[in-house]
Write a protein that binds this DNA or RNA. Structure first.
Lengths: 353, 353
DNA sequence: CTGAAAGCGCTAACAG
DNA sequence: CTGTTAGCGCTTTCAG
């Protein structure tokens, strides 16, 4: 889907789009001043005689004038719009993680008079429209990229351009690239620590999509902790999920069939933990009695499912806020922007482990 | 004169650095044609010689040109952006209802090459910025309004303007105003029918915010059914919630204290049903043994809580899709747009009733 | 089939 | 303090 695909016939568009046409020119004429003077009171730039300003303001209000943001954007080469790039999946806003990020980003954007445009994009890289194309349309002052894949070459191309962007939950090696992440390695270690202290010695791991840095880091943390305690973890206890409940369910089914059950499963995110629990429950395996389960994220559901989920809480909403703040800092040329920030995680102990 | 000399090709000079700033003029110069010809192949309007078109397309691809959408919007007076007006509340995207609407709207918008801009607005009417102002900025081709309040006078003013809009889950009396709703009255009746058939004769009702038409309709349906069966329902069994878990919890607390428990509570939405159940559980009142609970909506959580919630399913995602389709129909001047559509509801029987 | 001229509504830069 | 001129990058109109 290219941006310049043919659009429906022209006359059709014109019949409908009859705007209530109050422009800056109308205000200027009414107030007997030039457009510039009106523009000045609109933007608070330059000086205007108090009397003139009063007169103009009154007319603006009377005529209910609002500046045409498109025209202004074109003139100023700045749109005051931020784009949030999210993977184009089914019902993306029902994904609690994405919803929380969006909440954080939106809250900060609004406070700073920025608008948010949603850009669901096929991140698999198959599609011909990418966020690169979106960047090139000049409609966005900056972008926040969610769930970026490792090895996405477009990131490097984006970095060559001049539109600011921030990656959420992605750990870049390059110092040129701004990102916000949380302490994934440490979080995974905390999970194993907790399980170890609860006398677990046979701990399995459900990994997330290995094309995301946070999935890799969590596995890194898991392995580090396993090694620290000198535990053994056969290959069959390292399962490869994809951050979905369904895949986790299927993998757990295999595990159960193998007849080599661990006493605990640590999952790279909560959705997978829910999948694991559903599978375990279907086999009447007691949680946490026979097998304890831990997750990562602390999504809303985790407190509601039975048994409630013990998990490593990631401050997702804060991740969103933080990334928006960083982006706005870059946009406003704030010299002292750090190129990345790592937020802390926290263990939430509930019933499942 | 030097100033009339053609600018050197930027492509040859700064291959990588400048890719973000390629304009239609650059393409035209490179292809030795006028901007108009490029514009024609971009938009598929007018005729262009096949050979010329090929040449231009190749250059566009080589230079990775994307039209400046802001400039195009200004010239065409059409932005291809839809605004979704949502109440500005804390963590709005975590509201499952809003998330589902958004999913539906986004899916349809994307299919039609429209973008979505998020417009959280203080719907209490106190704030000075309203969706009216947003409409006047001419940045939106149309708007979808979610959770509109009854008696919001701005709606009428909006209707006087010429930006198309659709109300979601709002039943307007005016035929001029487009809206999408679901069968709220019927749904509430279905709930009471179900409870009646399960031998319940003492049924309480937890109403939603009475400034929303769907809350009123659900109460209407409830009362209608109560009357139909000749049941008695004292005032104290009609509780006034606000579609929040917390208020529902508090109201239920009162009910429990009153020592005049019904055998069932029908709630105007699922969040309130969850609040009711939490309160009941805190008093060790068995659900559905002592008191059955029903909700409305069928949000994601409803299947997960214990006991799982029996509820009237509203096709929220479809509501979103439907409203976007209607809006696009209005925008493209489709003559046969209905001015409203009502979607069907469905009873989902689970454990709580 | 192609191009030149004239905006869309606004602001930046420079006069006065 | 205020106005004039010249665009922003694209499309429309009208002429070839």
């Amino acid at each position: 889907m290219l941006c310049w695909e043919p659009r429906p016939s022209i006359w059709k568009q014109h019949t409908r789009i009859e705007w209530m046409k109050v422009t800056i020119t109308d205000i200027a004429r009414e107030a007997n001043v030039s457009k510039m003077t009106v523009s000045r009171v609109l933007n608070g730039t330059g000086q205007v005689a108090p009397a003139t300003e009063q007169r103009i303001r009154k007319i603006i209000e009377k005529m209910q004038y609002q500046p045409n943001l498109i025209a202004r954007s074109l003139a100023m080469r700045q749109t005051n719009i931020l784009g949030v790039i999210i993977p184009k999946i089914e019902h993306m806003f029902l994904d609690n993680y994405i919803a929380q990020i969006l909440s954080g980003v939106t809250d900060v954007a609004l406070e700073n008079d920025y608008k948010i445009i949603l850009c669901p994009v096929d991140l698999s890289g198959k599609s011909d429209t990418s966020y690169l194309d979106i960047a090139r349309t000049k409609m966005l002052d900056g972008m926040i990229l969610v769930k970026t894949k490792i090895g996405d070459r477009n990131i490097d191309k984006l970095a060559e351009g001049d539109i600011p962007f921030v990656l959420v939950n992605y750990k870049s090696r390059s110092d040129q690239i701004h990102y916000i992440d949380s302490h994934n390695i440490k979080g995974a270690e905390m999970a194993v620590d907790y399980l170890y202290n609860k006398e677990h010695r046979d701990i399995a791991f459900m990994a997330g999509s290995m094309d995301e840095t946070n999935a890799r880091d969590r596995m890194k943390g898991f392995k580090k902790a396993i090694k620290k305690y000198g535990l053994s973890c056969p290959d069959c206890w390292i399962m490869y999920g994809d951050f979905s409940k369904e895949k986790a369910y299927a993998e757990t089914e295999n595990l159960v069939q193998s007849d080599n059950l661990p006493t605990a499963v640590f999952c790279s995110d909560d959705y997978m933990a829910i999948g694991v629990m559903e599978c375990l429950k279907s086999h009447n395996i007691d949680i946490p009695g026979q097998v304890a389960v831990m997750g990562f994220d602390d999504i809303e559901l985790s407190a509601y499912i039975i048994p409630s989920l013990t998990t490593i809480r990631q401050p997702i909403y804060e991740l969103g806020k933080s990334s928006a703040r960083m982006l706005l800092d870059i946009i406003s040329d704030n010299e002292q922007v750090e190129n990345h920030r790592i937020l802390d995680v926290e263990l939430i102990a509930r019933e499942s482990a």
